[in-house]
């Protein structure tokens, strides 16, 4: 494996909800190599976005974080950090909604120039030039003219490109992507994925990409982590996970979306709906919806176990699943 850039160890996030507390992220371990692209897949409420935001310290107020986060700012191995260490210096994030994530009271050029001005002390003109250069790099046509526009004057695709330029302006080593293409049209999504792939290869950046869409993750990511109800239930190289999922939830996810290539085989889908973080089921949290569930599934302790080199699964009956599955 390449040198480590980021390590997340036993991450647990607790939030106040009404009178009680909930634990939407419950014991997540992640490791990311330099230049690697990791995809986190999961449905709404699986804790994938919170995991991502905890890496850059953008959690909602009142969130309690336990666990260890380590990041390599220089060339050494990852060390513990606080969010101020990495803001504008090592880690950037782009969000799903380019409409609400950009400050509507700033011109696009100033938005992009803000990072370099604060963190590198560039002068106004130098920062403005850098902004235009970045806008060109992310494929915005006529960047000089567009730098003077307001966010609301741009289309969704262009706004997402502006957000990417803003994220790149501080030359991060790690780019966190929180469903950046979900709100976009297919053809624009395709353009943005191509752009992210280009940036990643040209700048040697690492990416963590969060999405509910496995096919989108597959286009960009080397490795996948599948999240369900606050836990990572399977990890592995993208191609291996697609060809032979090691967890029933992964398999169910793959068979519940109509594939573009296959003609209509009846979609399986998953019974029930994702569990409420206020009352996660005991034992394996997927067991109430799992078609392979056995009696002992509801008592099993959660543990992500290595199945092959480079792969792991939290299913305690991988052998049954493998036989009954494919």
């Amino acid at each position: 494996m390449t040198k480590r850039l980021l390590e997340v160890e036993d991450l647990r996030i607790t939030l106040q909800a009404g009178s009680g507390t909930i634990t939407p992220v419950d014991g997540v371990n992640l490791a990311l190599g330099r230049g690697e692209a990791l995809g986190i897949a999961g449905e709404s409420g699986s804790g994938k976005s919170l995991t991502l935001k905890s890496i850059i310290g953008l959690l909602p107020q009142g969130a309690q974080v336990e666990g260890n986060l380590r990041f390599a700012l220089g060339d050494e191995s990852p060390i513990p950090y606080t969010s101020t260490d990495v803001h504008g210096r090592g880690i950037s994030i782009i969000f799903q909604e380019p409409m609400t994530a950009l400050n509507p009271t700033m011109r696009v050029g100033d938005l992009i120039a803000e990072g370099p001005r604060i963190h590198e002390g560039l002068s106004k003109t130098a920062a403005r030039e850098r902004a235009v250069e970045l806008m060109r790099q992310v494929g915005i046509p006529a960047p000089e003219r567009r730098a003077k526009m307001w966010p609301h004057q741009l289309s969704g695709g262009l706004r997402q490109r502006v957000m990417i330029a803003t994220a790149l302006s501080t030359r991060p080593k790690l780019l966190l992507c929180d469903e950046p293409t979900t709100a976009l049209d297919v053809s624009i999504q395709d353009q943005i994925l191509g752009l992210l792939q280009e940036i990643r290869i040209n700048l040697g950046m690492s990416i963590i990409f969060v999405s509910h869409d496995l096919a989108v993750l597959g286009e960009l990511c080397d490795r996948l982590a599948i999240m369900y109800a606050g836990q990572i239930v399977e990890t592995g190289p993208t191609d291996d996970v697609f060809t032979k999922p090691n967890h029933p939830y992964t398999e169910a996810l793959m068979t519940s979306v109509p594939s573009f290539d296959a003609t209509s085989v009846k979609l399986a889908g998953i019974e029930g709906h994702p569990p409420d973080p206020r009352s996660f089921p005991p034992g394996c949290r997927f067991s109430p919806r799992c078609r392979y569930a056995r009696e002992d599934c509801t008592e099993a302790d959660f543990e992500l176990v290595a199945t092959d080199a480079d792969r792991s699964s939290a299913c305690i009956h991988t052998e049954v699943f493998a036989e009954g599955g494919r």
Partner: peptide
């Protein structure tokens, strides 16, 4: 044809900078 090419497919890696449909 472009819409079909743009749809993400399982097991196909994205080529850098490539897209089925340019512009908006």
């Amino acid at each position: 044809r472009a819409l079909m090419a743009a749809a993400p497919k399982f097991g196909v890696k994205k080529a850098p900078g490539e897209s089925a449909l340019k512009g908006e």
